[in-house]
Design a protein around this nucleic acid. Sequence first.
DNA 1: GCGAATTATTTTATATATAAAATAATCCCC
DNA 2: GGGGATTATTTTATATATAAAATAATTCGC
Lengths: 166, 166
Amino acid sequence: MILDSETKAAELPEDHGEELRLWLRLLTCTTLIEGEVRRRLRERFGVTMPRFDLMAQLDKVPGGMTLSDVSKRMMVSNGNVTGLVERLMESGHIDRRTSETDRRVQVIRLTRLGRADFRRMAAEHKAWIADIFADLADKDVRDLMRLLAKTKASARRARTTPLPPA
Amino acid sequence: MILDSETKAAELPEDHGEELRLWLRLLTCTTLIEGEVRRRLRERFGVTMPRFDLMAQLDKVPGGMTLSDVSKRMMVSNGNVTGLVERLMESGHIDRRTSETDRRVQVIRLTRLGRADFRRMAAEHKAWIADIFADLADKDVRDLMRLLAKTKASARRARTTPLPPA
DNA sequence: GCGAATTATTTTATATATAAAATAATCCCC
DNA sequence: GGGGATTATTTTATATATAAAATAATTCGC
């Protein structure tokens, strides 16, 4: 192999193929699990994943959340939340009220029906997830938690620190 | 703690909270990275992620792929592929022909333009991914590859083996 | 070779998603 | 306290996604 005279051994390959393969595998895993969970939610409860996810956010906070909070927590656009909220209102799973201190702000909450439906679904959902990950040892789960935390931190860093031009 | 007389110590907690947390973290990681990559693809090249992904599939096979193959590889519905292909035809990035041996089958390929555009994008894309994962050590990447392979296998097993009723 | 089952793709209806612009209300600061 | 910046949400236009039904072509058993 003939090397450019500027090239140092330490910074040699710069291939980055491994990171790309890792990203593709991560994406495949998530897509696979997401598809399975979506399918079960639809077949078992006739609910979509975004509806379930939004209800899951609301279940954590009895007082309700603003649409902006939901948007940030779910990492989706504001407009997306607007539509989801409309449909969950129609089906009677959430209610909304305008904040008394800031009339721009809409606070949404689970209704009694919404909470009951969600809790019922969440219990089964948890069992599905446990089953999906059942072939991992406890240590595997711990290791994955740690490595994904590191990945998350690295991705956040990359998001805010622009890449220097090549 | 008072135990039901049927409950054995070995099968005690059955909490499954760890698996759920792992799934949420996995989903967060993927969403975070996906969002960042999508943003860069749009800002830098004015292309969407599904278009990029479809082109990536086609770049791997010079002879082209059938729509069904694309659908399976990308893990999306057939109808989704139909729409994507229409738009990529319009922009001149792919062409399509009907198989001579089976007139049901449509084979799509990158055009010269499609291949050139994709290669140019893919090079930068790879650098973005490398940057996003840059804070992981080589060993972390290897460990993640191994653990995600195991996760993938476990998820596939769960997909085909129905959960026994609780 | 005929017809039933299968396979590949498209169509339909609808839900989810985004980005960007518009709207509306509050904040902030001089 | 008035006006510009900011913030929260909605609207608009479009792309992506699904599931399910429809269409069209092939295969397979007999």
